[in-house]
Computed example of a mutant assay.
Amino acid sequence: MGSFEGVITTGIYCLPPCPGRPRSENVITFTSAAGAEAAGFRACHRCRPYRGDRLPARASELVCRASDLIATGALDDGNEAELAARLAVSERHLRRMFHEQVGATPDQLARSRRAHFARRLLDDTDLSVTDIAFAAGFGSLRQFNRVMVGTFRAAPLALRKRRRRADRLVADGGLALRVPLPEGTDIDRRLAQLARAAIGGIESATATRYQRTVSMDGDPGVIEISSAAPDAVRLIVHLPHIEGLIHLVAQVQRLLAGQPWDRFEAVVRGIAADSTGVLHDLVTTYGAPVAGLRQFGLGYLFPTPTALAAADLSGIGLDAVGAQAIRACAREARPRELAG
Rank of each mutant, 00 (worst) to 15 (best):
S140M: 13
V237Q: 00
G103V: 13
W261P: 00
R42P: 00
R58V: 00
T72Y: 09
E82K: 06
Q324N: 12
G6Y: 09
R114V: 12
A154L: 10
G52M: 12
G139R: 15
R48G: 04
R120Y: 04
V278K: 13
A74L: 10
A228K: 03
A266F: 12
I28C: 02
S140R: 10
V268I: 14
P230H: 13
Q101D: 05
A250C: 04
E5M: 01
D319P: 11
C44E: 03
I326S: 01
G322C: 05
Q295W: 02
P56C: 01
L194I: 10
L298C: 07
P16V: 11
G20V: 15
R165S: 12
I199C: 01
M97N: 02
E80W: 01
A115H: 12
A115T: 13
L83R: 08
R113T: 06
D172F: 05
V147N: 00
D319F: 12
R294S: 15
A136Y: 01
R168F: 07
L83N: 08
A228S: 11
H99M: 10
I132K: 00
L181H: 06
S140T: 15
D53F: 14
L194W: 10
G270W: 04
G35N: 07
E332M: 11
F4A: 04
T185P: 03
T130L: 11
H241W: 03
L55I: 13
A207R: 09
R234A: 12
L191K: 10
H99K: 08
R189N: 06
A74M: 14
A323P: 09
T125M: 02
R146K: 13
G173P: 01
A135H: 10
A195W: 05
H45Y: 04
T285V: 04
L248D: 06
R190G: 12
R48H: 07
C18V: 13
D274H: 15
A266K: 04
A38C: 06
Q108P: 00
L298H: 09
